[in-house]
Each structure stands twice: as structure tokens, then as C-alpha cells.
Amino acid sequence: MTLLPIAHAGHWLVDLLYVLPLVIAVGVLATQSWRDKRQEKAEGRVDKSADAPPAA
């Protein structure tokens, strides 16, 4: 079995560090997008209830 030289792990770890900000940013943006959509839906419901005729 060929073992990966431990020193080479430094390369891969450093390479991964360049990807990490992108991963974090995508995660935050996806969450924010989901929140925006939820908020818009909620606002849509409020608008509808405001437009609805008062109950007799």
C-alpha cells in the first residue's frame, strides 16, 4: 500500500483553504435566499389577508 507522504498533506490543506471562502459564501447565500423566499411568502400572505373582505 502506498502511503501519502504526510508532508504532501500541507499542499492539499492549503489548496482546500482557497475553496473554503467559496463554500462558506455559497452556504450563507443559499440560506439568505431561502429566508428571502420565506419572507416574501409571508408578506404575500399578509397582503392577501389585508385585501380579504372583513368577516361578517
Binding site: P5, A7, H8, G10, H11, L13, V14, L17, I24
Partner: peptide, 18 residues
């Protein structure tokens, strides 16, 4: 995140460790 970055900066000075 800031602590993680600072920690990694100390632990991994730069590329080409091998």
C-alpha cells in the same frame, strides 16, 4: 471564523511544505 483563519495561518505558514 476569524479564530479559525488565525489558527490556520499559524499552523500552515505557506504552500510547498513537502
Amino acid at each position: 471564523l476569524v479564530l479559525l483563519a488565525a489558527g490556520l495561518a499559524v499552523a500552515l505558514p505557506d504552500a510547498a511544505l513537502a
